[in-house]
Design a protein around this nucleic acid. Structure first.
Length: 673
DNA sequence: AGAAATGGTTTTTTT
DNA sequence: AACCATTTCT
């Protein structure tokens, strides 16, 4: 027998043992995070302090040290963020980094639940409903319960879903939620609870889960089945959670469960950037982390590499206004810049003119459009600007506000897909049938009862009711569905057929149909990238198309577009020039938050997040006059801006060209000879 | 009875 | 602009 001696492999511990020169690329605190070995760690990272950079290098370092990439779990706020980080890690190391488990809590939970569906009594092909679907279910059970016929106005479906979701995310009784947050609806408590129960029942009967269910059911799965928990957590040798300040209590619990075998958990976040409490996020999670995970190593990243000192001064000054103080002061060794601008315009439209012209001027100076961004509190705050940008042919993409896949016309098309994928989908059939003339909630419901019993749910010949006005339309629909079912076509071909069928409905229903028809064409193109109809539905639910509109044809040659974004959707991103528009009291802070100190603080953090996106130059802009249905009225600039130390910003005055010329002439007259 | 039209109210941010 | 409740139409 021959002996072969295996050398003992020294675990790589010190930076010098690695091929990547980490010490040259990172500062000391970042190094501490990247080289943190075992046990829990909390990285408190201020805006622009290289948080993402640190996570990316930590992934690379762990993989390089020999950890199997699929035993690393990286949880992020969006799937896009996870993909981007793994791409960057692959760039600095190699492709192995792409095998790191990653994504949102919802995505990872969905994966686990599909795998262990038996344990919770669901079929493995249960479907996920997004917010818009959930709203339709609420609407459906609401009409079924026939709750109206009361002088008192019943909460709308959005409010109802918010109530239900809050009670689940914060683990409170629905009554308590009503008492604390919706006292105006307390009178209707019984009926609201009825809706909540009917909603829950619908989901269980139809084997669907909403976003909250994904988290709750995973928590229950792991908490009640120790064998499954150990199996899953054993695999998660290293767990990292990004944006920890925006996780909710459930997610904090899940974090603990996921890492419960190895205990190697690193959370990264910034309590000053917590902006999702409306969704149940609890920035207390950051403060509680060291208690939840005993022996936590605390690492603080404090040097900002993103912005000029002038921008940071403004950001720091904003935070000082908080009712509940932060112990935070960003500093930077970056080179000096200009004072942030405070721009007052006479109207919203003049504001749009200013932004557009300023953008064009910057472009002439050689700046790329995609180095600039316009940020705002609400999706609608950019409507006027969008019109102006279109007029000036400035290409832009908008993030936040209504998503592409949430628009009614796209939902209509998708409802046909859902009917084809699952003929028992009540809500989808409802939507499809109610498009037809003469079919309302009741008839749609009756037809669905019939469909449930039919041999072929797509063969809609109800020969005995020929007298009905909608019978011909029903035949058309049936022809489409049967045809798609019987032929094996590509996803995009199917979408094209549905769009062709739907086009006339679109024209009838919407005045702005040209725009919507364009969206439909774009959707046919987008659908090419999906492998199957069920996969498409799943992907779109967990990772919806975040832009508001999608280009019909990929205009590859054209320049990279300007970014318009809600502040919420701008999280984690950065641009050289950042314009924050509609800085008005009532908008930011939102009128709904001014009563409550904590909510007011969140609005302040929102403005802080917006301001810290800027690298070179920051502009706050607001109009003094606003239009409403009843006429124009004067507005107040945001209290956060008026309370700011005025030396930190420079006021810009907008002057019309003619006025300027008159001024010039006036000046000349005063000049001697 | 049930669909469509009309009038008055409310309107955030998103996985 | 979307939504809810009520009124009018088929």
């Amino acid at each position: 027998m021959k002996k072969f001696v295996l050398q003992k492999e020294e675990p790589r511990k010190r930076p010098e043992d690695y091929s990547i020169p980490y010490a040259e690329l990172l500062n000391q605190q970042q190094m501490d995070a990247v080289f943190h070995e075992k046990g829990p760690a909390l990285v408190v990272a201020g805006a622009g302090t290289g948080k993402t950079r640190t996570l990316v290098h930590r992934v690379a370092r762990l993989v390089e040290s020999g950890i199997n990439p699929s035993n690393i779990l990286l949880l992020t706020f969006t799937r896009r963020a996870a993909k981007e980080m793994l791409r960057r890690a692959s760039n600095i190391l190699d492709e192995r980094c792409k095998q790191v488990q990653g994504g949102t809590f919802h995505f990872y939970c969905s994966m686990l639940l599909h795998r262990y569906s038996d344990a919770i009594g669901y079929p493995s092909n249960f479907t996920i409903i997004d917010t818009a679907d959930a709203l339709e279910v609420i609407q459906f059970v609401r009409t079924q319960l026939n709750l109206h016929k009361k002088k008192k106005r019943f909460p709308n479906k959005n409010t109802l879903l918010n109530m239900i979701s809050t009670s689940k995310n914060k683990h409170l009784d629905l009554r308590i939620v009503l008492l604390e947050e919706y006292p105006q609806f307390l009178e209707q408590e019984e009926k609201i609870i009825q809706v909540a129960e009917a909603y829950q029942e619908y989901k269980e009967k139809n084997f669907v889960m909403d976003f909250d269910d994904l988290l709750i059911n995973t928590r229950d799965l792991l908490a009640k089945n120790d064998d499954i928990r150990i199996k899953i957590a054993s695999r998660n040798e290293y767990v990292m959670v990004d944006e920890f300040q925006d996780t909710n209590k459930l997610q904090a619990e899940l974090t603990e469960l996921f890492s419960s075998v190895h205990g190697n958990i690193m959370a990264v976040g910034d309590d000053a950037q917590s902006i999702y409490s409306f969704r149940g996020a609890d920035h207390q999670n950051i403060m509680d982390f060291p208690e939840r995970f005993k022996g936590t190593k605390l690492i603080k990243l404090e040097e900002n590499y993103r912005s000029t000192p002038q921008i940071l001064q403004v950001a720091n000054n904003l935070l000082k206004q908080a009712n509940f103080k932060f112990d935070k002061e960003l500093y930077s060794n970056n080179k000096e810049g200009e004072l942030p601008a405070l721009v007052q315009s006479s109207s919203e439209h003049d504001q749009s003119r200013f932004i557009t012209q300023a953008l064009l001027q910057l472009r002439e100076q050689g700046k790329e459009l995609n180095e600039m961004a316009v940020l705002f509190r609400n999706g609608r705050d950019s409507f006027d600007l969008e019109v102006e940008l279109n007029r000036k042919n400035i290409p832009f993409v908008k993030y936040g506000g209504q998503k592409f896949t949430e628009a009614a016309h796209i939902k209509d098309v998708l409802a046909h897909v859902r009917v084809l994928v699952n003929p028992m989908d009540t809500i989808a059939w409802n939507r499809v049938l109610m498009l037809l003339d003469g079919i309302g909630p009741k008839t749609a419901q009756d037809l669905f009862e019939w469909i449930q019993l039919a041999k072929n749910p797509y063969q809609l010949d109800l020969s005995d009711t020929t007298s009905k006005s909608y019978i011909d339309q029903l035949k058309e629909l049936s022809k489409l569905l049967v045809d798609i079912k019987e032929n094996d076509r590509s996803v995009s071909k199917v979408i094209e057929l549905i769009v062709n069928y739907y086009r006339d409905f679109c024209k009838d229903r919407y005045d702005d149909y040209p725009k919507r028809l364009k969206d439909l064409e774009a959707f046919v193109n987008v659908s090419e990238s999906f492998l199957s109809l069920p996969k498409m539905l799943e992907e779109l639910a967990l990772d919806p198309i975040t832009a508001t509109a999608v280009d019909t044809e990929q205009k590859t040659k054209e320049e990279a577009p300007l970014i318009l974004s809600t502040i919420h959707s701008a999280k984690g991103l950065e641009w050289k020039h950042v314009f924050i528009i509609q800085c008005l009291d009532g908008i930011i802070p939102s009128a709904y938050s001014v009563e409550d100190e904590e909510q007011l603080d969140e609005e302040l953090r929102l403005l802080y997040v917006a301001a810290t996106r800027a690298e070179e130059m920051l502009y706050f802009s607001y109009p003094v006059l606003a239009q409403s249905a009843y006429g124009d009225y004067f507005t107040q600039p945001s209290r956060f801006i008026t309370e700011m130390n005025e030396e930190l910003v420079e006021e810009w005055k907008l002057i019309e060209e003619e006025q300027q010329q008159q001024l010039d002439e006036g000046d000349q007259k005063q000049l001697p000879g």
